[in-house]
């Protein structure tokens, strides 16, 4: 109710200027969107070409003939369905664990005071800074000795506890007014209660963000599965994609087709969650 009044107030001050501004913004947005989408257009067109047409000079935006069979070929050439299942399993598990544990830990970093907090936090950030290539070998040796090599579980535990989620959630929690915690404490809630009843509901947008990022990153991870997963039944979609690239020949038309297919699940996740960015939640509790 408040917002509509407030909106009308602003619109009152200069309607013509506002309309012009709006048109400019729209033109800008559309131009940017086109710029963003051009490579995808080329991807789609390549996925419908013959292998040797993909890089032929001069380039063609529209294929001469449409080779729809590329889209069935990718499922026949490699067990893409198995790869999809594996990737989905890893991505869902990682996202679940990551969101749960890191939103929990982030609460301690953002709203509690304890000895060694800052040092520990720097430790977390420090590990983000070390490139994976540098500690991959020690990590692998350790994981192998635990019997996790070539299991999907390996990919889950490797990615589920990354520092990224903790850092992200901590930053969001910090922007939630501390007064809210205090008020809750006075009302007799424990810290766990504050986390579950106040922080979690208030950080829906943040959790949606974390879920999207974790899901997308896990879905598109390549090096990890490449090293840790060997049997065909365990491989993931990104590793599967590279099976179209070989030593002396690569099938870019199939890579494009398979990449476009692999885009679908992640886009669905994004579309489902993005409503949380619109739903305003900030005004809900400040009055307390």
């Amino acid at each position: 109710m408040e917002t509509s009044v407030h909106g009308r107030e602003i619109r009152k001050d200069n309607p013509v200027l506002r309309r012009i501004l709006r048109v400019i913004i729209w033109i800008l947005l559309i131009a940017l969107a086109v710029f963003t989408l051009i490579p995808f257009f080329w991807m789609i067109s390549s996925s419908l070409k013959l292998d040797r047409e993909v890089f032929a000079f001069p380039m063609r935006w529209i294929p001469e003939t449409y080779h729809w069979e590329n889209y069935s070929l990718i499922w026949e050439r490699v067990p893409l369905l198995t790869y999809f299942k594996n990737t989905a399993f890893i991505a869902v598990m990682v996202t679940l664990l990551q969101t749960l544990t890191s939103s929990f830990a982030a609460y301690a970093f953002a709203k509690l005071n304890f000895r060694g907090r800052d040092v520990l936090f720097l430790c977390y950030i420090g590990t983000i800074a070390v490139p994976w290539q540098a500690y991959m070998l020690p990590q692998f040796i350790m994981m192998r000795s635990m019997g996790l090599y070539d299991t999907l579980w390996a990919m889950v535990v490797l990615q589920a506890f990354s520092a990224f989620g903790v850092f992200l959630m901590r930053q969001f929690y910090r922007s939630i007014p501390t007064e809210l915690c205090e008020a809750a404490r006075l009302d007799g809630l424990s810290e766990y209660g504050i986390w579950a009843r106040i922080m979690l509901p208030l950080s829906k947008a943040a959790i949606a963000t974390l879920v999207i990022f974790t899901f997308v990153n896990t879905w598109n991870d390549y090096m990890g599965p490449m090293i840790y997963l060997t049997r065909d039944m365990n491989k993931t979609i990104q590793v599967g994609l590279r099976r179209f690239i070989q030593q002396y020949s690569s099938d870019y038309h199939l890579i494009m087709a398979a990449s476009l297919c692999s885009l679908v699940p992640v886009s669905v996740v994004f579309l489902c969650l993005q409503r949380y960015f619109i739903e305003g939640i900030a005004t809900s509790g400040l009055k307390g």
Partner: peptide, 25 residues
């Protein structure tokens, strides 16, 4: 202790699978 109980689920996984390998590096 409460703070640690918040940290533990994440930290244990983090320490084993990331921190120790990083220290090795």
């Amino acid at each position: 202790l409460i703070a640690y109980s918040f940290l533990a689920p994440n930290f244990i996984g983090f320490a084993v699978f990331t921190l120790i390998p990083v220290i090795c590096a």
